[in-house]
């Protein structure tokens, strides 16, 4: 696995999570957008197709990680929110064989002592896509807002467990 160097000489890894199809592709779309914006010069950009617990392999304690995932928080489509890690852990439930999602993987990583030194989790509110191209606009706006948010994150690292910024 190659690692990009951040502006402060720090290895950043930005990971888009989800399925490449069926409306759960916002993490993938974000990575494409960031790559086109040149973020691959300063960070390793990855997409992971529903990794489950395999996400932990990408969360080494000495790494600097930004996770981007689609979310359903009842917000307007395309809303971008940084999620507080403490809040995510509260929602983590006992994993079942088929339901070991982002919250459970992060809780498991934390229990194993493996959370990155700097970790941000960003959610993009899912929305409907119309056959006539509806949905493209909110996606563009979401990616634009996300780019600004990620750029800021890469300049000002904060400690794990920070409060959400919305």
């Amino acid at each position: 696995m190659s690692e990009g160097e951040g502006k402060q000489g720090v290895p950043w890894r930005i990971i888009g999570i989800g399925s490449p199809v069926a409306g759960d592709d916002l993490g993938w779309l974000a990575i494409d957008w960031l790559r086109n914006a040149g973020f691959d010069r300063d960070a390793e950009l990855l997409t992971l197709d529903r990794p489950g617990p395999a996400l932990i392999d990408y969360l080494q304690p000495d790494s600097w990680v930004i996770l981007i995932d689609a979310m359903d928080a009842g917000l307007p489509a395309g809303s971008v929110r940084e999620l507080a890690l403490d809040g995510i852990n509260v929602r983590a439930s006992a994993p079942s064989s088929h339901d070991l999602g982002l919250a459970e993987a992060l809780a498991l990583a934390r229990a194993l002592g493996g959370l990155p030194r700097h970790l941000y989790v960003v959610g993009i509110q899912m929305g409907a896509d119309g056959a006539d191209g509806a949905g493209q606009e909110w996606r563009r706006e979401a990616c634009s807002a996300l780019t600004t948010r990620v750029r800021g994150m890469m300049q000002v690292p904060v400690a794990v467990g920070t409060e959400a910024i919305s």
Binding site: A94, P95, E104, A111
Partner: peptide
């Protein structure tokens, strides 16, 4: 109780 609790 679960695998997360066991992991520690």
């Amino acid at each position: 109780e679960n695998g997360i609790a066991m992991a520690g």
